[in-house]
């Protein structure tokens, strides 16, 4: 059994959380200010995940901001970046449009900006 100290990254408060880990699992979470923090801490000691944000090109040469709709494995972030960088989309695109249904392990790639037709 060990106690791991984490800083929660879910929101700007950045709670300092102590997680008691036993057998590769979180058995106790203390210090979190909300349920998001509990889930973050439980996940962080097993398989840390992050939302990846980046940009993709449009067919007319603009950049469009994008994100994964759910966090992806932190250890695979560079692989995910490679996959995102290969994506090219045709305008028009609006905030919230799904650009790739499954970019990596079930995560969708979603537009976070607009690229209207020129």
């Amino acid at each position: 059994m060990e106690v791991v100290n984490l800083t929660c990254v879910e929101c700007p408060v950045g709670c300092s959380i102590n997680v008691t880990v036993d057998g590769g699992k979180a058995i106790k979470v203390e210090g979190n200010g909300c349920i998001r923090g509990k889930l973050y801490a439980e996940n962080e000691v097993v398989c840390p995940k992050r939302v990846v944000t980046s940009t993709v090109k449009t067919t007319d040469g603009r950049l469009l901001p994008v994100k994964t709709d759910i966090p992806v494995r932190k250890s695979a972030m560079f692989e995910v970046m490679g996959l995102i960088n290969a994506v090219v989309v045709a305008p028009p695109v609006s905030v919230g449009d799904v650009l790739v249904d499954d970019i990596f392990e079930g995560a969708k790639l979603v537009a976070t900006g607009n690229a209207p037709t020129k």
Binding site: P65, V95, G96, T112, G113, N114
Partner: peptide, 25 residues
Amino acid sequence: LNQCIHNGFGLTRFKESLAGPEYAD
């Protein structure tokens, strides 16, 4: 906000984590 493509905006106001351009939109 248009160049702040990272997420984490809007947690207080919208209770969700938005990218900068999404928040602006």
